[in-house]
Design a protein around this nucleic acid. Structure first.
Lengths: 234, 234
DNA sequence: CAAAATAAGAAACTTAGGTTATCGCCTGAA
DNA sequence: TTCAGGCGATAACCTAAGTTTCTTATTTTG
């Protein structure tokens, strides 16, 4: 099966042990060495850092099918706060067992390394976006990316999907202010590119939206777990 | 020995095979599957992406002691252009041999995976910086980071080091314009924080500079090869 | 060594996006 | 059923950083 970058999918886990989190609860704290990584089944979360003066930057959104988070295996544990945006259902993958296998199963750890490199690549795409694109481009890119990730998990129907982010969340991810996110969304709506109301998103013209921000589907490849293997893991 | 994150240091390489690049030559092209990764012995390079309209974003500077670049092992090869800023001396590490070992030696691939996660972490620090810090903070952070990486390799003497970046290079990394880099450098000089002339940098007050941008040494940990193991590899 | 290219400095002007503030609408708790 | 707090919309105003242009230093190279 063609899922070379989802090294956890054949990892033993206990589906019966599904864990529920409510909205705005912490999946991880900075510095922690979590006992489990989470395979997200349902719900969204954000991983962010806070600066001393209160500024916040979200560097990743987690959604169904995502593994949260392989980089917790790194030496000093978690380097970000992870908080649920909606209620969440997740399957725990025991960290100790992963680490044991990491040191004994070269196929497993090799795939895990490649997964890390793929993630590095997706993240460096956002480095470019934050570094040199306009507010309109950044916001469009976020919408394109989230929409594609949802589509890859069969969570888009008829160009519509759930979209539980507040304008503040989008602002903290794209490096904008909520006011400017509001202005920019209005502009995207006026240009008949999207509809967004009551936490539901509809893409009216994906191609034009993608062209507007130079979105390339490719950088997501190998980054997202797809629907079938999620089922297999559970 | 405490170098958990430099998985290539015990990798066999042929020091006699040292390769020289002149300034402004390509170490890698996008999409390529390079035959070797480079352990940089001498000189600086930048890894960047170009947008269609000519905008450029540098997402990483390579300098002595760095491995350029483990992420080339990922499925689709190189995703960035890498160009030397100065003449470069580098030791080639054969990619095929690395890949073979990646699939057979769990200790090796495990360490490589962790190296990838550490790099992910360092990069997400820049995501935060580009996402929500001011021009002054971004430029100070770049200077702090490069200075620390050089210091870790014994390339700082008496608070002074080589600094071969043009203002355009710094601009393309920090998401500023060269004109604004010039203004901001002038300001840092006027505040007695740095001296910078003729490609030589002197840090006058590291602590104040680090405080100005919220620089945390920690995020570099495990990311840079240190001087002794470099020698060991060669 | 001179010519040519490249980089840096500086001033004047413009603009994208930040700031502050107000208002109305949902939503969820009591 | 109401009331409070969060969220979204909008407007007026402000500022950090971009743009353009020109001049002066450095490198590079022929």
């Amino acid at each position: 099966m063609p899922f070379p970058s989802a090294p956890f999918l054949d990892f033993p886990s206990d589906a019966a042990a599904t864990v529920h989190f409510r909205s705005r609860s912490f999946l991880a704290h900075r510095g922690e060495r979590p006992s489990a990584l989470w395979l997200i089944e349902e719900g969204w979360a954000s991983g962010y850092k806070l600066l001393r003066d209160g500024r916040r930057h979200i560097s990743r959104f987690y959604m169904p099918g995502d593994l949260c988070d392989p980089s917790w295996l790194a030496a000093d544990g978690v380097d970000q706060l992870v908080v649920s945006i909606t209620p969440i259902k997740a399957i725990p993958l025991d960290r100790m067992r992963i680490e044991a296998r990491l040191h004994s199963d070269p196929a497993f750890s090799g795939r895990l390394a490649l997964e890390g490199f793929a993630r590095l690549r997706a993240q460096s795409e956002w480095l470019v976006t934050l570094g040199c694109k306009s507010a309109t481009e950044r916001l469009s890119q976020l919408i394109c990316e989230l929409f594609c990730r949802l589509a890859a998990n069969g969570r888009v129907e008829d160009d519509r999907c759930d979209f539980p982010l507040s304008q503040q969340d989008m602002a903290d991810f794209t490096g904008m202010t909520p006011v400017h996110v509001c202005r920019t969304l209005k502009e995207l709506k006026e240009h008949q590119l999207i509809e967004l109301r009551r936490r539901r998103l509809r893409i009216l013209d994906f191609d034009r939206l993608a062209k507007l921000c130079g979105f390339e589907h490719a950088y997501l490849a190998g980054e997202t777990c797809q629907s079938p293997p999620l089922a297999a893991a559970a």
